[in-house]
């Protein structure tokens, strides 16, 4: 199950946050094919956002083929994303690496910077326009999940 958390000051449109958090849960294996997403009512009661925002996010996920709405039943996961479930060997290696970094005396920001630098080397991000044209109404569609926020943990 996903528990959406809306950050009102992130500059990322709310529906995009819901899309991203769903994808994150799919990547981590917290959501698997066949799982039911929370209903719009459940999400809005927990987050106090407009129901249309949730429906818009679900429509976007549906358009990408990740979920499907079944009339009267709810919205269900169709396929999962990526190959990095929460319990994969890669994650275990990363855990060990993070523990070693900590032993070596690296601060949280040092680790984040290091990780981002390596990430950039192996996965160059697309160009990131500073100001967008009026046609692109929704700010930050090109987002990259660099761990430069210090307040957030793992969505679970």
């Amino acid at each position: 199950m996903v528990d959406y958390r809306i950050d009102r000051h992130s500059g990322v449109a709310t529906y995009v946050q819901i899309v991203q958090q769903t994808k994150q849960a799919l990547r981590l294996g917290l959501l698997a094919p066949g799982d039911k997403l929370p209903t719009a009512r459940e999400v809005v009661e927990a987050t106090a956002v407009n129901p249309n925002t949730v429906l818009k996010a679900y429509r976007e996920l549906e358009r990408e083929g990740l979920v499907e709405a079944r009339r009267g039943l709810g919205t269900f996961v169709r396929r999962s994303l990526g190959a990095a479930p929460a319990d994969s060997p890669l994650r275990a290696e990363l855990e060990q690496w993070a523990a070693r970094a900590r032993e070596a005396g690296l601060e949280r920001e040092d680790v984040a910077a290091l990780f981002t630098a390596v990430l950039e080397t192996h996965y160059p991000a697309p160009a990131h326009p500073q100001m967008q044209t009026q046609a692109q109404r929704h700010r930050t569609r090109t987002h990259h999940p660099a761990p430069h926020t210090t307040s957030q943990g793992d969505p679970s």
Partner: peptide
């Protein structure tokens, strides 16, 4: 918001806290 989602209730609310209205 849950009422609006479940019953399609139309809600009209006045407020001075504009930031609070942005998401709702």
């Amino acid at each position: 918001m849950g009422q609006a989602a479940a019953h399609g209730t139309t809600i009209v609310m006045s407020s001075h806290v504009v930031a609070e209205l942005e998401d709702t």
